[in-house]
Amino acid sequence: MWYHISDWNAVYDNAPNTPRGADWPAAWVEPAATFRTDQAAKGLLEADLSYGPGARQIFDLFRPATQPKGLVVFVHGGFWMGLDKSYWSHLAAGPLAQGYAVAIPSYTLAPEARIHAMTQEIGAAITAAAAKIAGPLRLVGHSAGGHLVTRMVCEDTPLAPELRDRIAAVLSISGLHDLRPMRNIWRNATLAIDAAEAVSESPALQVPLAGTRLTAWAGAMETSEFLRQNALIANIWAGLGVATRAVVEPNRHHFNVIDGMALPDHPLVAALLDLPA
Score class of each variant (00 low, 15 high):
Tyr107Thr: 15
Leu61Pro: 08
Ala103Leu: 03
Leu61Gly: 08
His90Ala: 11
Val75Ser: 08
His90Val: 09
Trp88Ala: 01
Phe62Pro: 07
Tyr87Gln: 13
Ser89His: 09
Met81Thr: 04
Ala97Val: 04
Pro64Cys: 11
Tyr100Pro: 02
Ser89Lys: 02
Ile104Trp: 01
Ala97Pro: 08
Ala93Val: 09
Gly78Gln: 01
Tyr107Arg: 13
Phe62Glu: 07
Leu61Trp: 04
Pro105Tyr: 13
Trp88Met: 02
Phe79Cys: 08
Gln67Asn: 11
Gly82Cys: 09
Asp60Tyr: 07
Ile104Ala: 03
Ala92Tyr: 09
Ile58Trp: 02
Val75Met: 06
Leu91Ala: 14
Pro64Leu: 05
Pro95Tyr: 01
Leu71Phe: 13
Gln67Pro: 08
Tyr107Trp: 15
Tyr87Gly: 13
Phe74Asn: 02
Val75Arg: 05
Val73His: 13
Leu91Glu: 07
Gly99Trp: 02
Ile58Lys: 12
Ala93Cys: 12
Leu83Ile: 09
Thr108Ser: 08
Gly77Asp: 04
His76Phe: 10
Tyr87Thr: 05
Gly82Asn: 15
Trp88Glu: 00
Ala65Leu: 03
Asp84Cys: 15
Gln67Ser: 13
Phe74Gly: 00
Val73Trp: 12
Gly99Cys: 11
Ala92Asp: 10
Phe79His: 01
Val75Glu: 05
Thr108Pro: 09
Tyr87Val: 04
Gln67Asp: 12
Gly77Thr: 04
Gly78Arg: 00
Ser106Thr: 09
Ile58Arg: 11
Ala65Ser: 07
Ala101Phe: 12
Leu61Cys: 07
Gly99Gln: 04
Val75Thr: 15
Phe59Leu: 12
Leu83Cys: 09
Ser86Asn: 03
Leu83Gln: 12
Thr66Leu: 14
Gly99Glu: 06
Pro64Met: 06
Val72Gly: 13
Gly82Tyr: 03
Val102Gly: 14
Gly77Asn: 14
Val75Lys: 01
Val102Glu: 15
Val72Tyr: 06
Gly94Phe: 09
His90Gly: 09
Gln98Glu: 01
Gly94Met: 13
Ala92Phe: 10
His76Met: 13
Pro68Asn: 11
Ile104Asn: 02
Asp84Met: 15
Ala65His: 07
Gln98Asp: 03
Gly99Phe: 10
Pro95Phe: 01
Leu61Met: 05
